[in-house]
Amino acid sequence: MQDQILIEMKSVQKWYGGYQALRNVDLTVRKGEKIVLCGPSGSGKSTLIRCINRLEAIQQGSIVVNGHRLDDSIKAIDVVRQDVGMVFQSFNLFPHMTVLQNCMLAPIRARRISKTEAEATARKYLERVRIGDQAEKYPAQLSGGQQQRVAIARALCMQPKVMLFDEPTSALDPEMVKEVLDTMIGLANDGMTMICVTHEMGFARQVADRVIFMAEGQIIEEGAPDAFFRNPQHARTRQFLGEILAHH
């Protein structure tokens, strides 16, 4: 079971008009794997994970998530989105709903579970991201770090098989980065399959099974964090690591 493949991308190509955002991307993610995607801005790492839950359509290649091939059919997109949770850089909480309502909406609407059950699940996950006491507040009343933890809880309430993180700490004030990373580390330790686009290399060292470096829409190299950081193979990777590690 440990080797079950959850995501398989094959020869994925994506264009925005004449601009090619993804070039021939192959990626296989097994159950329980934690993957960190890094690379300079515009390298296609966000685009890559946004293709996995079909926020972006691909033009060539194939993506299979948990045994379901992602095509243009609403049914396929639906099934895949039920299995894939996503956390955004800008949180994207629903501002007109309380924290609790944010977490209850999708399970009620998309999974069709009862209100009571949805509330119990929501409170459980809010507790888990240590924000249970803020359930009745509105997103605007919370700090950035708290909002992002609510966003994580909201995604977990759908009980996804995979979690995608799209630069989850980039919009946060420095003092709030840690609380969100700690939440993510907790999730990783519980065995969640995760793909994280992030520049937090400390996080990558601590939890990643694989670190993948992208540039110009291609996967340049990948490896276990130890080898990846100690001995990057490509000049492009070394240059990138040199640039971002200089700040730490």
Binding site: M86, F88, R109
Partner: peptide, 23 residues
């Protein structure tokens, strides 16, 4: 309404009718 609202709703598996009505 910011595009991110619709994206978050889509990522949560909400259909068009719910995305419009609820979000």
């Amino acid at each position: 309404v910011p595009r991110g609202q619709t994206e978050a709703a889509m990522a949560l598996g909400l259909h068009y009718s719910s995305r419009m009505r609820d979000i």
